[in-house]
């Protein structure tokens, strides 16, 4: 095992801290918790970094951060509701265009793993294989999670209206 030396550690933190904190904040919805998750992410990353074995440092850090958030939510982890197969028209989101806060709230209420998939896709611009690596699921499951999340957000906004 190769352990990062302090200069490597500093470089790693400088380059990726903001992105990891931002991801953690979106998943935890709390600044202080996000800071804790980010600190813990880098502490674990620095202890386990392998100079030859990591293909994408950013994806690897996102994976650790997502796992930490998932651990925090484990007790209230619940089965993700499945779509009933009847999708409301996609206009239901657009109709609420004037009220971004409601869209944000609907996104915040997604189950943690669906929320993570949406954040990694919408904000980080990661590809499906990259998200699949971070969440430990197949490419197909990533696409399904995003579709279900969209369906759920559309339904919620439709109900509210």
């Amino acid at each position: 095992m190769n352990v990062a030396t302090p200069p490597d550690a500093k470089l790693l933190v400088e380059r990726h801290y903001a992105a990891v904190w931002s991801l953690a904040r979106k998943l935890t919805r709390d600044d202080a918790t996000a800071s804790d998750v980010a600190q813990e992410t880098f502490a674990r990353a620095l202890a386990h970094i392998d100079e030859d074995g990591i293909h994408s440092v950013a994806s690897w850090l996102f994976k650790i951060a997502t796992n930490l958030v998932r651990d925090q939510h484990r007790r209230r982890w619940r089965e993700e509701p499945r779509s009933d197969g009847v999708e409301p028209p996609c206009e239901s989101i657009l109709e609420k265009n004037e009220d971004l806060a409601r869209v944000r709230r609907a996104l915040d209420e997604l189950p943690t793993e669906s929320r993570a998939a949406m954040v990694l896709h919408l904000q980080e611009g990661l590809t499906v294989p990259e998200i699949a690596f971070i969440l430990d699921i197949t490419d197909h499951a990533v696409r399904n999670k995003i579709h279900r999340a969209l369906s759920r957000v559309r339904s919620q906004l439709s109900e509210e209206s």
């Binding site: 904190w21 931002s22 800071s35 657009l94 265009n97 949406m118 904000q123």
Partner: peptide, 21 residues
């Protein structure tokens, strides 16, 4: 719209402190 709604958290509120890490 989803990107706009979800993009409110842009940066860490404070500079990352290297010392604890």
């Amino acid at each position: 719209l989803l990107r706009r709604a979800d993009g409110r958290v842009a940066r860490a509120p404070r500079r990352a402190s290297f010392a604890p890490v």
